[in-house]
Write a protein that binds this DNA or RNA. Structure first.
Lengths: 117, 117
DNA sequence: TTGAGGTTTTACAGTTTTTTTACAGGTCTT
DNA sequence: AAGACCTGTAAAAAAACTGTAAAACCTCAA
């Protein structure tokens, strides 16, 4: 079965309650934001098409030109702070994808320049 | 049924998602590029006439003078790097053909020039 | 009913992708 | 070798899509 919880280095989300924490600070999310985040987290690493999000979260079917989804994505990104743009990736012409945070193994360069001993 | 995946020494392509990798690096392909590549890979080793590509990927029917196909072929070749011209062959007056990569058995010459012992 | 918070729409700016244009450069036939 | 076709390419134009702020619209509890 699906895990009841998402958790990584920075972000935590409880699917049952919709409670989220970012860097140990509770995130205040509205209901739609929770549902949207849940959809993305529930499919982490995979592209979720706009159409699917609009259908599952909003119940919209068929094509309809609304910016609602974009606005909600924006608010989620904002509440995720600096990580917003890292976590939520835009797939042009398709939808969005949540990418789990991964601590970089090395610094910004290609590896340890010097042995520490 | 058709295979869900193309894979050789250098190139990898997933027909379902359209995700491609070249020499282990993910290739960033636009939708049309994905569709075009899929058509070529799905018929690897066989000539796919321009008309067929224009019809299947673009929905163009009848003759129409557009350079769209050529431009997209060019972009695909470019993203395939040095292999672009090897993979995608132009069949003059007909169309294009994707040729699977084959590791050369010997060096650039016609065979071992010398016995190694 | 009122207003405070939540949601959707509007309007337009900014991006990215796709198509067209305009030629240069090949290829084939005679 | 010349002319008729085809393809390659860069750059411009057009189309498609997303980001954003702000206003309008709901809804529900007090």
């Amino acid at each position: 079965m699906a895990p009841a919880r998402y958790q990584d280095e920075h972000l935590t989300f409880d699917f049952a309650s919709g409670a989220a924490h970012c860097d140990s600070q509770p995130m205040v999310l509205t209901r739609k934001e929770q549902e949207l985040l849940a959809m993305l987290l529930g499919n982490q690493g995979e592209i979720v098409p706009r159409q699917v999000l609009l259908s599952r979260v909003w119940g919209y079917h068929l094509e309809c030109r609304t910016r609602t989804l974009d606005v909600h994505i924006r608010r989620l990104r904002k509440k995720l702070g600096a990580l917003g743009d890292i976590y939520i990736e835009t797939i042009f012409g398709v939808g969005y994808r949540f990418q789990r945070y991964r601590e970089p193994r090395y610094g910004p360069s290609f590896g340890p320049a010097l042995a520490t001993a």
